[in-house]
């Protein structure tokens, strides 16, 4: 049985897209399978891991539990839209610098959740970062490098000096 497709339109990373899909398709599936934006990952498809986090109208949500139809007419930001052309977003830059992205599978979700945090709160404490990222699971890093990368990105976005500590890169 194949349900008839419907035509959906979204703005993804600033670009208008129109594509046809079946009503039961999630935003995750349409982004990855129809729009080839495979930077958005999946680790459970049940809202239990955070790997599929995207921004819908600026708010981080789990694309595995959003129908593509529900995103119609909305502004969707994926990891592919985080960098400004060839220039990495400060979050990306510091995730790369510190090794906050080991296998990289969860990174998109973390960075998009962090982007919203830094918009709402440009100078978050470590505890606020923990809370904001508490819907994303990482199995490689132990989170510490992620926290540090978000702190450094926040500093740079505030226009302050953002140099990783010696301990972060070398240990004590």
């Amino acid at each position: 049985m194949t349900a008839p497709k419907v035509l959906g339109g979204f703005v993804v990373n600033g670009e208008r897209h129109q594509t046809a899909f079946q009503p039961h398709r999630t935003l995750l599936e349409v982004l990855r399978e129809d729009l080839d934006l495979t930077g958005t990952k999946h680790g459970c498809e049940l809202g239990e891991c955070g790997a599929c986090t995207v921004l819908v109208d600026g708010t981080p949500v789990l694309s595995c539990l959003v129908l593509a139809l529900e995103a119609q007419g909305k502004d969707v930001t994926t990891i592919e839209g985080l960098a400004d052309g060839p220039d990495l977003h400060p979050l990306q830059d510091f995730f790369a610098e510190l090794g906050a992205s080991q296998c990289g599978y969860c990174s998109a979700g973390f960075m998009l959740a962090a982007k919203k945090l830094l918009e709402d709160n440009p100078d978050p404490t470590r505890d606020e970062i923990r809370r904001a990222l508490s819907g994303n699971i990482c199995r490689c890093t132990g989170y510490i490098k992620i926290f540090e990368a978000v702190e450094l990105a926040a500093r740079r976005l505030r226009g302050e000096d953002a140099t990783p500590s010696r301990e972060a890169l070398h240990g004590q």
Binding site: M1, A3, Q22, P23, L69
Partner: peptide, 12 residues
């Protein structure tokens, strides 16, 4: 991937 079953969608 775990996917949704098919359904008809209404949006009142």
């Amino acid at each position: 991937m775990l996917r949704l079953p098919r359904f008809t969608y209404h949006r009142p």
